[in-house]
Write a protein that binds this DNA or RNA. Sequence first.
DNA 1: GTCTATAAAAGGATAGAC
DNA 2: GTCTATCCTTTTATAGAC
Lengths: 230, 230
Amino acid sequence: MAKRQARFTPQEVTGDQRLLDHSPELWRDGFGDVARGLLASAVRCFAANGFHATTTRDICSAVGLSPAALYVHFPSKELVLYAIARTGHESALAEVRAAAAEPAADAAARVRAVMARFTAWHARHHVAARVCQYELTGLTPQHYDEIRELRHRTTEVFRDVVRRGVADGSFPATDVDRVVRSMLSLGIDLVRWYRLDGADSPEQIGAFYADLALRMLTAGAPSEGRPGGG
Amino acid sequence: MAKRQARFTPQEVTGDQRLLDHSPELWRDGFGDVARGLLASAVRCFAANGFHATTTRDICSAVGLSPAALYVHFPSKELVLYAIARTGHESALAEVRAAAAEPAADAAARVRAVMARFTAWHARHHVAARVCQYELTGLTPQHYDEIRELRHRTTEVFRDVVRRGVADGSFPATDVDRVVRSMLSLGIDLVRWYRLDGADSPEQIGAFYADLALRMLTAGAPSEGRPGGG
DNA sequence: GTCTATAAAAGGATAGAC
DNA sequence: GTCTATCCTTTTATAGAC
């Protein structure tokens, strides 16, 4: 019978405070006013129900337009997702590159800056980031490859700052790829549960995760026995 | 025009070695042979393209059945997803409970066991786990709530072993909820990238992540200056 | 640029034969 | 228990008026 039953109605999506668009600046450039509104609506819908469970009606009705209006601003639903994914990933990449370029006293400070800003970015933009991280199966293969390339560049920034710290003796020898994957996992997975009205601000959770990253890099492998405290 | 364009064709899904069903024992109980085959096929399809982009035809054609045959074994497509999600989450919960019940010398050994087995479970069952983690928006609200409850119980096992270690002085005082979330994030997020034909076996990645968990718990908060090595 | 109306296609689920 | 055929609904996208 029915083909789709999205878990959240358009009304629920529109009314959910946790799905508010906290990322208007992401769509600042290259989009008109209406297109920006459609992107913001699409982000909320995709984050709540997923790309394939969201209809063009859902996206448009939230901004008071008919489904046909979408096609004046975007050639297809897939290109709405692509616009979100590309803009988001470019923004995250710019963030970690800026962090890596900050003046830093040493390798630990560089890792701290990159991890803190990567994490804070995902926390601040957690609704858009959820789409960027978990809805990529909605992209065409070509667009997916483009996003993969942006993700690869972000990973490389992490690898560089960690490798530098290992090379100059700031950190003990370690499996750089495995630790970098762990750092990325921490920053990414928080978009599944983070809420802006929770206990931690994006900067606080960023600082905490930067601490964790340094603990992962600097502590020796704990023994099977008593590793720590009192 | 077309409603859906899944990124991977049924042939590609069937032929992808990385999506092989490494979890036949998950569907051991309570399902007939054909139902087990359908579950295994659905896991691959959902993992590759997502629940909503997968059709009943996709699921059935991979096991040589017509779309109508699915409804002899499951009342709806949603209940196929629910069967996968519930079975997977129950298995993961049993795993961490067994780990917490192992004889252990101290709190560190208990944390190590829980984290290692939780991680190894997700690595071994990474295809099914991807569905369990990222396709829950396809569930009805009632079924989603049931899965949430299972996830909550799993989280509680982690909280218990960490709290115990803080209480008996094995670990310095810390924000238990934040650290537990981080541990879960590491174990969960690996299903996005882990492959069984990669460098690490499930047990190896489990041991490595157990080390990371203990480092997160036992190291003092690194200062802004020189935190570590040479 | 937005609307109404609709084309074109596909999906979930069922009926009924075997 | 499986198949063929198909119903009914939904969906993406377009046509053409305003």
